[in-house]
Design a protein around this nucleic acid. Structure first.
Lengths: 149, 149
DNA sequence: CAGAAATCATACTGTTTTGGTAGGGATTTC
DNA sequence: GAAATCCCTACCAAAACAGTATGATTTCTG
């Protein structure tokens, strides 16, 4: 269960995209500038997001990315798993569990499972739409931060 | 927020210790054999557990480790933080947060915080005593697994 | 049509973390 | 005093992370 920069950047990019959903494709470069994400790195992340069916790409000049699904129908877990792979326990996981051989007769494994499940519930119950809306409110009140440079 | 082999091994060791609390000090070697944890690696983990005040060491022959606190008063979060350091968000964390400069005007940061908090609650509400008891039940019913080799 | 803008794909790289191993000390029991 | 045990430091290989580099392909625009 690891949450890395991929998730952080990916979520920022998706929020950015959701906030500008109506204005046609948004280029990676644009998002990179606005969110302070390394451009080429962000490009890679979009590959994952596209393969997961979360965004679709419009190639060529004036191209960019558009949300493939309704923001209310996309949650943070979708985004994280698209980028990091399935959100498993990390600890006491497949190979290691087989290796330690304890299988079901291990009191510890349940704790890790519950912890993972708790994260899945938090991420799974937060929609992109709610974050995009929250971000728009933040941008509107504290004006200087977003429009910035 | 990373949960690695340290936590897995450390928790197994603590459960093992709790199950044999009444029989005097338990050596790292013994636990290493029983739980299938590399001996020298486990020694290092006990340094962290000792410094956190979770166990105390008895040096010399017939020495070993004993729980310093009541198992009902130790939770999994205590153990994890003793071994891995404070369980922070990983993502959108101190340095990176300062770096990205968004501060409070970032809708994403709340999600990561809530996820971390959810894990803390799961781990923090599971006591060592409950796990030790569960383990003893497991060992009693599925007899072959634990006494094993 | 030429070129610019953009995604797509692959490979490489420097740093840090992880999961150990190694070799001795110091301390206590038998 | 020998054996068992904790204590400490250093070292190491492999993986993961965060990015960079390079170039091909597609599409709009002038």
């Amino acid at each position: 269960m690891r949450l890395t920069a991929k998730s952080e950047y990916g979520l920022l990019a998706m929020i950015d995209l959701a906030c500008r959903a109506e204005a046609g494709p948004v280029s990676a470069r644009e998002i990179s500038d606005r969110q302070g994400i390394p451009a080429k790195y962000l490009e890679q992340l979009f590959v994952g997001l596209r393969k997961a069916g979360l965004v679709s790409a419009v190639r060529g000049a004036r191209g960019g990315f558009v949300l493939e699904r309704d923001p209310g129908d996309v949650n943070v877990l979708d985004i994280v798993e698209a980028l990091e792979g399935s959100l498993r326990p990390t600890v006491c996981d497949g190979e290691r569990a087989a290796l330690c051989g304890r299988g079901d007769s291990c009191a510890a494994s349940g704790v890790w499972d519950r912890a993972t499940q708790a994260v899945r519930e938090v991420l799974g119950s937060t929609t992109l739409a709610s974050l995009a809306q929250a971000q728009e409110v933040l941008d509107a009140t504290g004006d200087s931060a977003a429009g910035g440079k």
